[in-house]
C-alpha cells in the first residue's frame, strides 16, 4: 500500500518535471531542424541557423551590450549584497527586518511598474537612456538576490572566527579579507553567477530603459516580429538556455553545496 502511494507521487513528480522542461527542450530540438517551420515531423539535421547567427551584426552588438551590463551589475550588486548581508547578520540593529523587507520589494512589485517608474524618473531628470540606465534597473532586481544568497552564507558560519581574528589584533579590514571573505567565497561566486544570469536574461526593464543600444533579450524581442527569423531566434534561444542552465547549475551547486557542508560541520 505504502509503496504504491510513493509511486504515484513519484510519477506525478516526473510528469511535472517534463512539464517544466518541455519548453526549455523545444528550443534546442528545433534549432537543428532543417525547416523554417517549427513543427513535427523533424525534417533533417542542420547547423545553418547557427551559422546565420554568426553573420548578424545586430546580434553581436546586443551580445556585447548584455555582457557589459551583466558583468557590471553582477559585480556591483554582489558588493552591495556583501555590505548588506554583513550588517544584517553581524550587528544588532533595530528595525533591520523592516529595512531588509524594503530592499526586497523589487522582487514582488511587477517589473513593468518598476520599469516605467524608472523611465519617468530618467526622463524628467534629463538622463539619456543607455546601458547605464538598464544597469540601474537590473541592479534593483539583483541586489535582493545577492543579499539573500550572502545572508544565508554568513549565517552559516561561526561568528567567533571573526572575533578571534579581531582579538588577535587584526583590524576589521584584514579580518574581512583573511577570514570572512574566504569563508563566504562560495556565496560570492554564486551571487556573481546568479545576478549575471538574471541581468543577462532580463527583458522587461531592459525594454523600457534601453535607448539605441539593445541588450540580447530586447534584440530577440525585435526579431520575433519576423517569421523568417524564427529558426535563428530558436538557435540563439537554444544557446542562451543551455549556457544559462550551466551557469545556474554551477551557481546552485556551489551555493547549496556550501550551505550543506556548513550545516554538517556545525553538527
Amino acid at each position: 500500500m505504502k509503496s504504491r502511494r510513493i509511486n504515484s507521487f513519484a510519477v506525478y513528480a516526473v510528469i511535472y518535471l517534463i512539464f517544466l522542461y518541455l519548453p526549455v527542450a523545444v528550443l534546442p530540438l528545433f534549432s537543428f531542424n532543417d525547416s523554417s517551420y517549427v513543427k513535427f515531423p523533424l525534417v533533417g539535421f542542420t547547423l545553418k541557423w547557427y551559422s546565420q547567427l554568426a553573420d548578424s551584426h545586430g546580434l553581436q552588438n546586443a551580445l556585447v551590450n548584455s555582457l557589459k551590463v551583466g558583468i557590471s551589475v553582477a559585480i556591483i550588486s554582489t558588493i552591495l549584497g556583501i555590505f548588506a548581508a554583513k550588517s544584517v547578520t553581524r550587528y544588532r540593529m533595530r528595525r533591520s527586518g523592516l529595512l531588509v523587507g524594503f530592499i526586497m520589494v523589487p522582487l514582488v512589485i511587477p517589473e513593468i511598474i518598476l520599469g516605467i517608474s524608472l523611465l519617468m524618473t530618467f526622463s524628467i531628470g534629463g538622463v539619456k537612456l543607455s546601458l547605464i540606465t538598464i544597469s540601474i534597473g537590473h541592479l534593483m532586481l539583483c541586489v535582493p538576490f545577492s543579499m539573500l544568497v550572502l545572508i544565508s552564507r554568513m549565517e552559516g558560519f561561526d561568528k567567533s572566527l571573526e572575533e578571534a581574528s579581531l582579538d588577535l589584533g587584526e583590524n576589521a579590514w584584514w579580518t574581512f579579507w583573511r577570514v570572512t571573505f574566504p569563508i563566504i567565497l562560495p556565496g560570492v561566486v554564486a551571487s556573481l553567477l546568479l545576478t549575471f544570469t538574471i541581468s543577462f536574461d532580463e527583458f522587461v526593464l531592459a525594454f523600457f530603459l534601453s535607448g539605441t543600444d539593445a541588450t540580447l533579450p530586447v534584440h530577440i524581442w525585435s526579431q520575433l516580429r519576423f517569421p523568417d527569423k524564427l529558426p535563428s531566434v530558436l538557435a540563439l534561444g537554444a544557446i542562451i538556455v543551455v549556457l544559462s542552465t550551466i551557469v545556474i547549475l554551477f551557481a546552485e551547486l556551489i551555493r547549496r553545496g556550501g550551505v550543506q557542508l556548513n550545516k554538517q560541520s556545525k553538527v
Binding site: 526549455v24 542562451i240 542552465t245 545556474i248
Partner: peptide
C-alpha cells in the same frame, strides 16, 4: 533551473 533561464524565451 528553468525559473532562472530567460523568461522571454
Amino acid at each position: 533551473i528553468p525559473f532562472w533561464t530567460s523568461y522571454l524565451l
